[in-house]
Amino acid sequence: MRIFVGRRVKPGSSLENTTRAWRGKHPHYKQKDCIGCQRCFLGCPEGCVYQMDKKRFDVNLDYCKGCGICAFECPVEDIDMVLETGCEDQP
């Protein structure tokens, strides 16, 4: 068997690389007024929003980069962006 480096990279292995340190804010899913439109779920660039049942979503904070798309796109304002401790709000 020959030795290769970088020829066969494990699928899905980027999961080992958490990106939580990227963000200054994170979304808080209030799970009150959700209508199940899935805009947060389908629109997340990371794919770290997950669906628990028809009208209940949450975010995996290991990977959330705090882009704010889910909160901005939510038609019923059921997601708040919350400052990380130690972070200041950027204008």
């Binding site: 290769f4 480096v5 970088g6 020829r7 990279v9 699928p11």
Partner: peptide, 15 residues
Amino acid sequence: FTMGAMVGPDAYMES
């Protein structure tokens, strides 16, 4: 599997 990944200074030389 992934073939043709972006390999940086950490492993390019070994390849």
